[in-house]
Design a protein around this nucleic acid. Structure first.
Lengths: 131, 131
DNA sequence: ATGCCTGCAAAGCCTTTGCATCTGC
DNA sequence: GCAGATGCAAAGGCTTTGCAGGCAT
């Protein structure tokens, strides 16, 4: 069993978390960097990445690995789906409790939804045997 | 209306397509580059990328933008889903015609499936108004 | 005091692109 | 012949990492 390191609440981590929870825009690491720099002008992009990774590890935030685009982060961890703009990459929320919508007409959070991407996640035989 | 450029069947494009159709492994561009180089030792990685993009544009192959990992390519364009190994990133096929499986037990193509990633795709208000 | 964390900068990985040359049609 | 394609190499975008010093506990 691996002991997990003790985490410290630094001002950097606190501000990153606050700013992420303050927005609904699912920002990228560098967008968050720009925002955080207004309060901590000397914060570095590396620190932003490191803290986002740690916060995602502990489940305090979500790391969104959207298909084929830059990673984004989400301060809300409640059960919901995401919609990605196929043109600009902007991401919005889709409530997990809604009934299956008519995708041609459904609009959520300012998006016109017209597609669904689905992929299964699992463990391949090789990796499974090695665990 | 934009005229699309005339495409030429070069030996590079033909061999990339042949090798991609020959395998079920959903290779990445650099994996395909290694294979293609056995037949065309002077082919460049840039050429592999350019041809894969063109073949995907014409629908001859699929460009898989799997979540949070390198792009992969698929020589079969029939209707199917993919399963991604959360450990090594390897990708397998899941037939689109099967009934909804018990995901805890279902195995397909050497994968133990235990999750499903879903994301909606659409157009955001800003991009929609600009079209 | 300890060891986790930071800023900075460099490196890493994947992908795209500029350019001179070559080649399919 | 000419537009499109190639090889090579450099640059680009995003992310990670090594290191010396800094700070929460």
């Amino acid at each position: 069993m691996t002991a997990s390191p003790k985490r410290r609440m630094t001002s950097q981590r606190r501000i990153i978390l606050e700013e992420l929870r303050k927005t609904k825009s699912h920002p990228t690491a560098d967008e968050l960097y720009v925002v955080a720099r207004k309060r901590l002008p000397r914060i570095s992009l590396g620190t932003v990445y490191r803290n986002l990774d740690q916060l995602a590890e502990t489940g305090e935030i979500l790391k969104l690995e959207m298909c084929g685009s830059q990673k984004r982060f989400d301060g809300s961890t409640h059960d919901h789906f995401h919609v990605r703009c196929r043109i600009c990459g902007r991401v919005g929320d889709v409530d997990a409790t809604l009934s299956l919508p008519d995708l041609d007409r459904f609009k959520a959070d300012q998006f016109e939804i017209n597609g669904l991407y689905m992929e299964f996640v699992g463990t391949c035989a090789g990796c499974e045997s090695r665990e």
